[in-house]
Every structure is written in structure tokens, then in C-alpha cells.
Design a protein around this nucleic acid. Structure first.
Lengths: 189, 189
DNA sequence: TCCATTTCTTAAACTACATTAAGTTTTTTG
DNA sequence: CAAAAAACTTAATGTAGTTTAAGAAATGGA
């Protein structure tokens, strides 16, 4: 049921079978159809989501009405609107399945309890959040140091399979330009 | 000596006097003169830095030779090049004092030991990293949703004192445009 | 398998911001 | 307190990327 998550946790800390059994009742596992939403603007984000299989994306709608993708989560990544999740306030974001996705969720009303019952998980989440922070530092540098074309070519060389996996308009907004411009870049060579 | 840090930690968890005494020998406290460096490109980042007083900034030099500020840390914020710090690899960043600054540092060779001796701090750092992650999500949205002028006006309305505190060229690169353009915006009104 | 929807492409006109360069003001330091 | 260095301003010129709009291709559902 939750083996994808247990395997991931065990990459960072040792979680015994007994501890897994304590954790299990606090989790929920379910499928999300392609294009279905786990969160929409105005709603309060109910859970922190772990992707067991598939792909979720976090985006918002800008003043001009365009979707701006700010994050993707593939296998073994957590995704949520952290502010909305932690403080149970209305979100300005959408979380949508970019593909048919298998999700494991920890809901807000059990989040603190989880750390209380399994303090070991403080370490797991600290390490995950450190990875997130590394990724953010890399991403900001990347956004500030290259032109749109360089960003695309660089991203494409690092994650060629992923570029094939999602529609170009999602990728374009994630990389900070328009789908038309991405089309232009590709046509070049 | 380390009271600024102890106070900060106690906002998130309860750290007893005894525990403070365990922590103390793993910390270092020192002053950094304005414009002095805690890290330069090519060096390995030795520590994670907590600002007790003053202001540090993290920046890199882009292809055109311009400084790009990617992060500021004022009182009660931690700052480091996390990848370089965790894996002890050469950094592409500089950490410099934007003002005369009082720093409390935890060095790499004591970082794991700190969590081993004081597992409570796993929680403190998880909570800090959550705040960081919230800040990153906010920042990315901010960068993607507004024009340069809007970003400046918005930032200025949120943090007017901070805008006065640092040179405009640092702020301009942090907000993602040139000092000349910032000058132009200001002249407008 | 066909129609509807979604996604991608092309190209011309436009604009927000960068670049360059020179001059001015402010801050730092001996 | 004078000189040097650092920070800021102004303005002309240039360009990377956007906008708009229309058509082509791919995908998905009944």
C-alpha cells in the first residue's frame, strides 16, 4: 500500500515494521486522474502529497490569465502549498495531475500528531526539506544566470525524458517564458 | 554569547540550559566586517551561518561578470550554500557581509554530531527549513507574476526599512533587474 | 473511426528591460 | 578634511522575449 513511501523514508532513516504500522493509519493512498485537481485557488490545502507514481504540478493563474507552473513533483517527491497547508488558509495555487498519478497523502490534522508519535520523522522531513532548499538555490541561480534559450537547452540536456513527459506549455511557464517562444527555440535546431 | 540563537531556538522548541551547554562547544561566534567574505567562489563552504545582528548576502558572478544576489539574511536567519556545505564541494557562490555583522556558526564537521547529541534540533531545523520553503514558494510566485517595476514597488511596500538598508545594486539584482532600471523606476515618482 | 478538444507552430508587430557610456553624488579612508 | 572609491543617475540605442492571431497537428473520447 505505502511501500513506495516506506522505501523512500528508509533511504534516509531506519523505520521499523512496527513504526510503519504506527504511520500507516495516518496516511491515505489514492489515484488522481490526469488533469484532476488536488487543490484549486481559494481552497485550503488539506494535505502534503507524496508522488508514488506519475506527476503533479503546482501552478497559479497570473494577472493576464496565464497559468504559471512553479513546481513539478514526480516519483518520490513531496508537493504542497506549504503556507496554505501549515496555516490552513486559502491558497492562491492549483495542484493538478499532469499524468495519471498515485498519491500518498498526510493530512493537516494528522501532521503534528505524526511527528509526536514518530519523532524519527523529524529527521526524515528535515533531510527532505534540505534537498528542497538545495533545489531552490540551484533553481534561483539558474533563473538568474541564463537567457530563456539557455535555460531550455540546459534543462533539456539534464532531463530529456521529463521534457517529453509534460506538455510544452507547462514546461515553458516553469522555465519562465511563453509556449510560442519555446516553439521558436525548438525550430532553430 | 549565543543568546540570540538560543532565543530563536526557543521560539520553536524548548531547549534546556543543560542542552544549551551541550550545544555551545559546537558553535562559534564572531564578527564580520562590512564587505568581508565568509565564502568565495571555488572555496568549500565551511559552516551554516546564523545572523545575530547585521546582514549577510549570498551572490554569484554571472557570465557577463555581474553580481547576482540570490539571498539576504538579516537577524535570526540562517544562510549558507547548502550544497557546498553538506557535501563539502567547491562553491559557485560568495557570502559577504552587507553590513558589520555578528555571526554564530555551526561547522560542517560538527553538524551531524549536533543532531546526534541533540536530536531535538532535528525539529528546530525542520521548522526553519519549512519557513525557508514557504519563502521560496512565495519568491518564485512573486518573480513569475509581476513586472520588474511591480516587483520593486511591492518589495518596497513590504520592507521599506530593508530597502534603505542595502545598496540599490544589491537589491536590483535580488529583484532580477539592473541598477540602471531601478534608478529609472525611482525617478518616475 | 471520426469529431472535438487540446497542444503546437509560425510570423509580424511590439515592448519591457538591458547595454553603454558619461556625469553626479555619496561614502569611505588615510 | 581632502582625495579616492563606491554608488547612483540620465539618456540614447539595442534586443530578447511577448503579444496577437491564425492555422496545423496531435490526442482523446464516444
Amino acid at each position: 500500500m505505502y511501500s513506495a513511501l516506506y522505501n523512500h523514508i528508509n533511504r534516509f532513516i531506519d523505520l521499523s515494521t512496527g513504526e510503519q504500522e504506527i504511520l500507516a493509519p495516518m496516511l491515505k493512498s489514492f489515484s488522481v486522474k490526469k488533469k484532476a485537481f488536488l487543490l484549486t485557488e481559494g481552497q485550503t490545502c488539506r494535505a502534503n502529497y507524496f508522488v508514488a507514481k506519475g506527476c503533479l504540478r503546482l501552478y497559479f493563474i497570473d494577472i493576464k490569465g496565464a497559468e504559471q507552473t512553479t513546481q513539478f513533483a514526480i516519483e518520490n517527491w513531496w508537493i504542497t502549498d506549504l503556507t496554505s497547508f501549515l496555516f490552513q488558509t486559502p491558497s492562491e495555487f492549483y495542484i493538478q495531475a499532469a499524468e495519471a498519478t498515485e498519491v500518498i497523502a498526510i493530512e493537516h490534522h494528522l501532521y503534528d500528531e505524526m511527528f509526536h508519535k514518530l519523532p524519527k520523522l523529524e529527521r526524515y522531513f528535515r533531510l527532505i526539506l534540505q534537498k528542497n532548499h538545495q533545489a531552490s538555490q540551484r533553481r534561483i541561480k539558474f533563473l538568474y544566470s541564463q537567457t530563456a534559450e539557455e535555460r531550455f537547452r540546459h534543462f533539456n540536456s539534464l532531463f530529456p525524458e521529463f521534457v517529453q513527459r509534460v506538455p510544452q506549455y507547462m514546461l515553458a511557464s516553469y522555465l519562465g517564458f511563453t509556449p510560442e517562444f519555446l516553439s521558436k527555440i525548438r525550430a532553430k535546431k
